[in-house]
Write a protein that binds this DNA or RNA. Structure first.
Lengths: 111, 111
DNA sequence: CGTTTATTTCCATAATTATAAAAATATGAA
DNA sequence: TTCATATTTTTATAATTATGGAAATAAACG
């Protein structure tokens, strides 16, 4: 519960949600903090604050490479949150929450 | 994006997350505001504030029955949020986010 | 009408969270 | 060591959000 609250709180902020989605798209290698700051036009100090928030919430992982620090999605943390939000729903009404949470082709227009 | 931010913000609060999960478990008929207040031991004024917050975020629906007002999960709103959180993930790495978000038996110990 | 019950709005206060400038830290290179 | 780059911590201020008492609204019933 507390983990979910932290994760939801971390995502419930425009800059952080944008950062998170950017890093989800960037894939497992992530992006350097400076790159993220530049892309989003957020001051370094502000971005650092938000990155820490996401990291502390278990949604991002940091890894140093030389003098840069790369942030990448913590897919396991992301999974935990999604599972928490869906588990109670499924127990009684599988048909209600299944479509939204599933990863089938056709949800995103890829095919 | 704005819808997702509102929904995440609504869920990122202990009382509201508890209320939401209670109502998810309660099913489509939901519960009267007073019942929720009594079960959680939250003052009516405080609960009303939180119920409104969840309703505005598109996560709950209100319906009057006599002098009581029943609040129930808005499964469509819930679905939208889950879809938003998972769609970008799936595009490149289906194997990464699929398991957490799916609704297979075995995630909740029901069988 | 007045009364009871259910819920909401109003309001002031308290608590939390965001922002970004400035100083500090860490790394790599000369 | 000194310099330049990358990021973080500190700090103060600003903005947002939570809380719950009291008054207001809404509905059912006599």
């Amino acid at each position: 519960m507390n983990d979910a609250l932290e994760a939801l709180g971390a995502l419930a902020q425009e800059t952080r949600l944008t950062v998170f989605r950017l890093l989800v798209r960037a894939g497992p290698d992530g992006l350097a903090a400076g790159d993220v700051a530049a892309r989003l036009g957020v001051p370094p100090a502000t971005l650092s604050f938000h990155l820490k928030e996401l990291e502390h919430a278990g949604l991002l992982r940091a890894r140093r490479d030389g003098r840069r620090i790369f942030y990448a999605t913590d897919y396991q943390g992301m999974q935990s949150l999604l599972a928490f939000l869906t588990e109670e729903c499924c127990q009684d009404h599988p048909e209600i929450c299944a479509p939204a949470a599933s990863c089938e082709p056709g949800i995103t227009t890829t095919s």
